[in-house]
Design a protein around this nucleic acid. Structure first.
Lengths: 207, 207, 207, 207
DNA sequence: CTATAATCGAGACGGTACGTCACGTCTTGAT
DNA sequence: ATCAAGACGTGACGTACCGTCTCGATTATAG
């Protein structure tokens, strides 16, 4: 996920090992503190204790730096398997909400939407990220279908859209209302969202 | 929601009638084509065939212009009442998807997320918009609860988050995948989303 | 000699009248104080109380600015006519030495030599300046020839080369030795130079 | 005048024999082609087929390299003695013109004037060079005075300024006018310059 | 024959200035 | 009073070069 891949083939002074990380961290911090406006390459360089040239040696421009900074801090939600559809989705949603409520997660959201507007500049990060998210849900659903727990006449994409979407909008409204949701609030919201999706809104008629 | 408030009668040359509209249109077009970076006041002025002063006489800065341009194209989803929860939500979701897949709707999404990141500059619009969306769902849910059609131990905010979120992410993935959903695709997706929310994912056990 | 020629045809805000002068003055001062290294566009802009764009609106780059700054302060030596060859040349040489010993004159020398090395960048200033200098001498010589005061089998170019060259090298050695020639020293040197050229070095044999 | 001073025997890999020369040559060529601006250490290193460290092991900075490059190609005009003032000066002037019309001589002129502008960085070379030139003339003049051939109430500095200056300005105008003086043109000009200085401009009154 | 050490080509590094571009302000003459 | 045009001060952009540094490779002397 880093720029990496450089096999370091010898000739010339090698790139300073720590620099990559320090720059990405500085970038995320600056972005978090000042937003896109006020997100300055000079400030990032200064905060990372690095010259601008060192940054531009690694990333071609401001957009790319931010995208990579976000990508480098992307978390994975793979490997969830509690044994039940409800349990799996709860676990996934809790982790998702936790992430999206963090500065890095919010930055990922913004970069994703920016990326969808100008794919030539922000590259494939957005597509990769949303595809990864849809996969987590797909795996959970496939297991649930195999267990006969879940209807099988529904593309899993709808489920991932619904869960991912609910989490994104929840993070959005947290920011707009100036809330700071704690772990308890997150767990409650996850339960409500998953409950709606698994059990539906209809009043149970006979049970 | 218009520029308004300043009736601007009195002495002197009156403001050129068409200008307001041409500027807002030009702004949306530029934003749609080039994204936030590459969205230039000079370009907007040029495309609208207008001097920069004419713009700055009406809006204080770039953010405000963009917010107003988006707001001027905002649509309302009020007044839906088909008689059933399922019917209401389908109608709402169809309209929502149609809007968010349009250039103006996509711009509204982006402005909303930008606004949440820098509320001091353009936060009010985002808050107003999301609040309005949550109200449409709230009204529908309250009527459904009164009819006994829907569980009443769930805050309506969860429902609006889920529907609005699913629609937003659907618009996002349409762009990322380069799709161009037609009316049929939209109706199908709306049915799937609302089905999931109203009926849930569980296999009906006895019916 | 200024950038000028702009007939100021109306449309748009006119260029700030004083700016041109303030920038040229600031440029010469910065150049005089810090030399070519340490001659910074930002510093010139700051000293002139002007933005960099205002400078780049008028001159395409650093070289051009310096050339024009020097050119704008170029002095003329036209109109010398004391009635005798000796008197004319003394007057010319005194003025020339005075000028070349001043900061502006020294800057003119440097720009001239730079210009001869890269004519595509420094343009025609160097050629114009040396041509003008040769003309002053040519006029003086032609009058002297007409009066029968001077040999007429010699191109006047040699005379101007000799006088201009002596003055340039005199200014050079003043700087290298850290001298600060006063008016008296200048007049003495002028007399010696012109004496050498008019009367020659040979011992007068019979007079 | 070479890099010298450090005999550099002892252990370790000895300095590559040809490097010194290749670097100085490359430096003069780059300087000649692009002038001071556009005279780049990287370009010199590349043209000499050498790493930058190899250059910086020998000279502390750009100024020093250039000064040394010029100094290494400096020619001497010592040992002229034809028996007459006129003959000596002709010989000196011819050699001087030949040198100053060559790339190395022109570079020496430029370095001299640059050095006079920032003596702390490269002043010594300029002072040494001009002092050497004045000595050649001084010797010639002293012999001429001893022979009673030349007036003795004139400091020899004036003569050297005049001759050196005329040669410098002649080289300048050759470049400005795009001429390429051949040996014949040089001899003619030398004769004219020396004639002016030895015999003066006055019409011989009785002969 | 091995250890030590200076030099080499390559090129990344922190810094500083370049020339460009956009923002939001301003100043003009015209409407 | 508003308009189109466009110059203004400010400040970030991405590039280029300086002089330093770090690397692995090379080439000598010293033990």
């Amino acid at each position: 996920m880093t720029t990496g891949d450089t096999p370091r083939r010898g000739r010339g002074r090698p790139r300073t090992p720590g620099a990559e990380d320090r720059i990405l961290t500085a970038a995320l911090e600056e972005y978090g503190e000042h937003g896109w406006a006020g997100f300055t390459m000079d400030a990032v360089a200064h905060r990372a204790g690095v010259g601008k040239s060192t940054i531009y040696l690694r990333w071609p421009d401001k957009d790319s730096l931010l995208v990579r900074a976000v990508a480098a801090r992307t978390v994975t939600f793979a490997g969830i398997d509690t044994g039940s559809l409800h349990g799996d989705l709860i676990e996934l949603t809790v982790r998702l909400l936790r992430y999206l409520h963090s500065p890095g997660g919010w930055a990922a959201i913004r970069v994703t939407f920016d990326g969808a507007s100008s794919p030539e500049r922000m590259g494939d990060f957005a597509a990769d990220l949303t595809w990864a998210h849809s996969q987590y849900v797909a795996e959970i659903c496939q297991r649930a279908m195999a267990r006969g727990e879940m209807v099988d006449d529904l593309p899993t994409g709808v489920v991932s859209e619904t869960i991912y979407g609910a989490a994104v909008v929840n993070a959005l409204s947290e920011r707009l209302e100036g809330r700071q949701d704690d772990e308890e609030a997150i767990r409650l919201r996850a339960a409500q969202i998953v409950g709606t999706i698994v059990d539906g809104l209809r009043v149970p008629q006979d049970r």
